[in-house]
């Protein structure tokens, strides 16, 4: 009994000492920025970015090999946080803007060329030759086809304005 306790104690102490020395001796300083970047990523290790897990992605980000928009599940929020951390400006518009958009005609620029309402797949734009065109909000899908067709850049996309009937409570923050 006594021998068993003593031998296990000695064994434990020796191994602990060995591990302790090894930890000090072979210590590798991790790059601080990588750890910080990893903390910003979702940590789900999904691999959608093409790197081996979030740690790999953080390393790639730190090395400047990957854009801040690399993380699909993180979306815009994560991309913004990463850009801030790295001090880079990033074009976040490519990340699917979830706000629904609506075409709108800037009346002072519209020349009434009828190109946009010919382009509209849902007949959401009405007007006539040399008349200012207007958008029917109910029918517009925000597909942006009219935007490309306009010769005077009078057509643009604006976020759908919230009304009392479409307003909803936001999702509560995570518990």
């Amino acid at each position: 009994m006594l021998a068993a306790v003593a031998s296990l104690t000695v064994l434990g102490a020796a191994l602990g000492l060995g591990l302790g020395i090894a930890a000090r001796r072979f210590h590798v300083e991790p790059e601080e920025i990588v750890a910080e970047l990893e903390a910003l990523l979702p940590g789900s290790q999904c691999g959608q970015c093409g790197y081996p897990g979030c740690a790999g992605a953080a390393q790639a980000l730190a090395d400047g090999k990957a854009p801040v928009t690399l993380c699909p599940p993180g979306g815009k929020g994560v991309a913004q946080a990463l850009a801030e951390k790295l001090g880079v400006s990033a074009d976040l518009s490519a990340l699917g803007e979830s706000v629904p958009m609506l075409a709108s005609v800037r009346e002072e620029l519209c020349i009434g060329c009828t190109k946009c309402f010919k382009a509209c797949p849902t007949d959401a734009i009405h007007g006539a030759v040399k008349q200012i065109h207007a958008v029917l909000k109910e029918a517009c899908t925000g597909c942006a086809k009219c935007v490309d067709s306009c010769p005077t850049e009078a057509v643009g996309l604006v976020p759908v304005p919230a009304t009392l009937t479409t307003w909803t409570w936001h999702k509560p923050g995570h518990a």
Binding site: T166, W167, T168, W169, H170, K171, P172, A175
Partner: peptide
């Protein structure tokens, strides 16, 4: 645990109504 349960339900009712619209 002070979980804002009814806030979740208001949000979800709004989200479902938005889906419906």
């Amino acid at each position: 645990s002070a979980i804002p349960l009814s806030h979740y339900f208001s949000y979800a009712k709004g989200a479902l109504a938005a889906n419906e619209r």
